[in-house]
Amino acid sequence: MSANLAAYATSSGEAFQFWVLGTVAVVGALCTILMRKAVHSALCLAGTMIVLAVFYLANGAYFLGIVQIVVYTGAIMMLFLFVVMLVGVTAADSLKETIKGQRWWAVACGLGFGILLAAGIGNASLKDFAGLGAANSAYGGNVEGLAALIFTKYVFAFEITGALLITAAVGAMVLTHRERTERARTQRELSEQRVREGKHVPPLPAPGVYARHNAVDIAGLLPDGTPAELTVMQTLRKRGQIRDVSTEAMADLKALEQRSEERLGRDRDEEEATR
């Protein structure tokens, strides 16, 4: 392939590949901006990027082609997917336009911009393609050639890029990390607050008291047998995961009383009979 790269025109194989994969890339790009769900957009974008990776390879940029697949498709797009999962589906996903005239202006500007760009390219008389054969073979390969440039001519830019990456990593951590803005209150402070408010001065009652069970999700019973929800922890209360055993307990109590009544009654009858 490298021999062909020097040529003015590309091989028919490459031309075939360009038209087929180019179509795929454009369709992928269009789907990226037109798909309603962000996940679909991300997948289409990943497809477009893979096609672009192939085009890099076709243009003799072997290193970049591989990096494109590994870094972009493999790392960046996955990061996107993670964030999509984190954010979830929102109203922003709707394709309905809310700003008046925005879509028409956008399309008009896009058309104008694209036509002008194409006109500029067509105007530039880009006939001579030097090809990458010589450049790639100068240091024994594409990767070696790039390495030679990066560590000589572009070494400072490379170092600064490294600093940028470090900064970006730190920045991302700073942005997403949530610092506790105030000190956690101590037991003493909490009890003082309870006294000040005047409600539930003693500690909350433990769950399961008089409930014939001692699981945390069973409310304690008040003297009249009704459940006290305060005894159950807040999270379970909010989730509505409270098991109420009071009716069961009441029924048991009733049966017990009846049974004792019956026994006592029979005993009384026997006493009367003996008298």
Partner: peptide, 14 residues
């Protein structure tokens, strides 16, 4: 151009 138009017409920041 497609990317630019996408920036303009989509509301989801991602």
């Amino acid at each position: 151009t497609i990317g630019a138009v996408g920036v303009l017409i989509r509301r989801n920041a991602i």
